[in-house]
Design a protein around this nucleic acid. Structure first.
Lengths: 357, 357
DNA sequence: GATGTTTTCGGGCGCGTGCCCGTAAGCCGT
DNA sequence: ACGGCTTACGGGCACGCGCCCGAAAACATC
């Protein structure tokens, strides 16, 4: 009594039968190759339309496997201790790679040092030289990234940006967060938690702040929220370009002495761990601390109660989707992809156990 | 100068060549079928081990496509207006179905009415009768679900539970939230937002509360948090089995009159929309409202500012993963799946635009 | 040693698609 | 009428794997 009423998903053979031609002719039409008279082409196209023909991706890729391999390249920072962050996207890419290796896809990684522009440039040149079929890049250095994007455009190589966007450039799509909203959301949390009479501090800890788009946009979003709530007078800010613990600690201690009514600290990147350490050392669990990224160090302080909220933007999924987008574009010709703005997740000590990065 | 150094992923042919047998013999060993002498079997197994042979899933499934179809069944509540919630899991399942249809998988849906146990029983019987290859169920009615699980166990049919678990039963895995932690997280948010001197209310709006595991566990989690913070005296509660607006509104109005210091309302399910409506009518944006599920009605009140936090557990992904887990188990023999506890997401007016259900 | 039975294995087809090669029909010029 | 050339199409192999059928080899029986 099985209900085997399933439609057998008509293939090329069925189309050929109905059009009274051979499969090869249908094939020519599907790939708009030459060698088919206009009359039969029309006829076949009509039948394809009618049957809503969907090529079998398995068979297609299997057949294509003989022809050659699709070669993807990824340009991203190497995951050092300082920037453990980049381990996550890499894991996502590896996961994607494992999934699609069967389809004849090969992924090469081009790592660079975030602090050395020269390493970036060198890898850009290697990528150009290697003549890949698709490229995924984290455009940390804007100028050189634009150069690479232009090269890809010229050669018709699809290119996906991740982590941060370069507005106005031609590319397949951008995969990453909307940074302004990320700051705006943090401000909302801060505002909810702010007890009467207390103030909030925006804390920037980074080598270069003025040029760092990621930080600037977040700060703007944060301030925008307080402005909307007519609470701008509650905002303080603290910047330091020294990223070691001592500089951060002494700077914050000085600030706290001058402004004892601090209730919330918002750190614009994953260096929040330094601030958490400081809070632990001065024994102030009552100050709300908001920061970024699902990293082991941050999680530890989340558990201890010194970090209250971590904002996370699914870096692993960013890597996974980046590869998959290129794959689908190249192998299955699924181009209709707009930008993918990652969710902005709130992680606390109560839900971090279930978080998927 | 292309680096085509990739290992060609040795297939059955290569194994056969090295073992000096035909591909058919290798095939017999791979599927541990009879008809191979112990000596050659050992030899072939050694080579398989050595080459770390991974069968090409595309080719495998393509070849299998002729034999027959893998038939999956899903038992879930029909998405009525009242329970729009179930639209999301269904969408996820449809997405999964579209993705794996190429692999010869057919999904049948067995809908029941959440308020009528008889419809559940009827569908259980249909499932048993239809002799499916795999089953995904939302075990709303526990007793009948156990009956179905036992039947599956007997027949060796893999079975995945979703949305809520039945502890102690044999099944492939559970996909859904950890309800206790869901309540616990809500309490944390409530506690953060609670201004001095204000109180929090647990609001249950459901036909049957005492028997509803989902609600009870959440309430327990919520209370546990306040107990840990020694703030139990700040907790009130409100229950109603009448799920219409008027009952909810008049009940809450009475409560508010008696306890004017209410600062937070925690509604344990998606009926939070009724409470939001009430807050709008009495014009009280200052009361923090926490509720469940990413539904259009709830989102509207999130935008307006009457709902502050929505807790969401990725229902769409639950459906997607449910189907995919069965698929991978049946087609690719990827059994090593433990339970998948979905993330517990916090959605506010500032990040809902980016949320993926 | 002839015949039956079991064990062990190879050949070959099919899954749906991509693509190369061959070929018949039509056209043109001489 | 014949050779050369283009156009339009069909036949057939390959991709990697599953599986059926039949054959060879080994063994058993009289």
């Amino acid at each position: 009594m099985k209900e085997n009423k399933e439609i057998p998903l008509a293939g090329v053979k069925e189309i050929a039968r109905r059009a009274d031609v051979s499969r090869a002719t249908v094939d020519r039409v599907i790939h708009n190759r030459t060698g088919v008279s206009e009359k039969t082409r029309k006829r076949i196209l009509a039948i394809i339309e009618e049957l809503d023909y969907q090529p079998n991706v398995l068979a297609r890729r299997l057949a294509l496997a003989s022809r050659g391999t699709v070669r993807l390249g990824v340009l991203l920072p190497s995951a050092s201790e300082e920037t453990e962050y980049w381990k996550a996207p890499l894991e996502g890419m590896n996961r994607a790679e494992a999934e699609i290796r069967q389809y004849g896809v090969l992924v090469s990684y081009y790592f660079f040092d975030q602090n050395l522009q020269s390493t970036f440039t060198a890898q850009v040149n290697r990528i150009i030289n290697d003549a890949l079929d698709g490229v995924l890049i984290a455009p940390i250095f804007e100028k050189e990234s634009i150069q690479l994007l232009n090269h890809c455009k010229e050669k018709g190589i699809p290119c996906v940006l991740m982590n941060s966007d370069i507005p106005g450039m031609e590319r397949l799509c951008y995969i990453g967060p909307e940074l302004f909203d990320s700051g705006y959301l943090s401000a909302q949390l801060a505002h909810y938690c702010l007890q009467p009479g207390r103030k909030a501090v925006v804390v920037n800890i980074a080598r270069k702040i003025k040029r760092n788009v990621a930080i600037l946009e977040k700060v703007e979003g944060f301030q925008a929220y307080f402005r909307e709530k007519d609470s701008e007078e509650l905002l303080l800010s603290f910047h330091t370009t020294d990223t070691d613990y001592d500089s951060v600690a002494s700077g914050l201690s000085a600030l706290l002495e001058k402004e004892p009514q601090i209730g919330v600290l918002y750190v614009t990147n994953s260096r929040v761990v330094l601030v958490a350490e400081w809070l632990e050392n001065i024994g102030r669990k009552d100050i709300i601390l908001i920061g970024y990224d699902f990293l082991s160090g941050n999680i530890r302080f989340l558990e201890k109660g010194y970090i209250d909220f971590l904002i996370c933007e699914k870096p692993q999924e960013q890597g996974y989707r980046g590869i998959m987008t290129l794959f689908r574009h190249l192998v299955f010709s699924v181009t209709a992809h707009e930008d993918y703005l990652t969710p902005i997740d709130i992680v606390t000590s109560a839900n971090y156990k279930f978080y998927r990065n």
